[in-house]
Amino acid sequence: MVSDTKSTPLVEATDEETFETVFRRYYPLVYQLAYRCTGQREEADDIAQEAFLRLYRTPPHSTSDQARRAWLCRVTTNLALNALRGRQRRISHEEQSGGSAQAPAPEDTARLNPEQQAIDNEQAAFIRSVLAELPERQQTYILLRSIGLSYAEIAQATGVALASVGSLLARAEREFRRKYHERVPATKI
């Protein structure tokens, strides 16, 4: 007979940290990453909640801060990219069936006037579309870096060698910039 209590140690025995502590510490980071990918508050919160649900159910073997942070960012990135792909599929499907679907605009922010807000939303959607043209791994590298992950954390989150992160990041940045300037006159920025 398989005994659940014997066979499923969810965490290491030395782990004394509360889930609440971990949640409070990392929620802003996880939400930020999800929002940066999706541009939708509700969707970002959904993704963040799902990432913590997975942490709760199947936490990583290591309980170090760095490992948890990297693990959460990896899961969040995967969920967010998955959500974006699903969104893109729906848009393509609706377009094929004659609809006039388009990517949802980023949501309102109270700090802006409507005109400025519309401009910012359009710009954000454009940047995300440029980002989406990159291979997913490159998207991941620069997104993780943009929210402040160290090279060691990026290496842990993406499974690449620490010594390769600088080169991979350089390639991703160059590609992003190239694609951006293919669509925007260089003088704009």
């Binding site: 409070r24 940066r36 940047i127």
Partner: peptide
């Protein structure tokens, strides 16, 4: 990339998020 947000003030409160979780 930073312009994609969210601004710090736009990140939901941790307590509310935890309760929702």
């Amino acid at each position: 990339l930073t312009s994609l947000g969210p601004a710090e003030a736009e990140i939901p409160d941790g307590s509310a998020a935890l309760a929702a979780f």
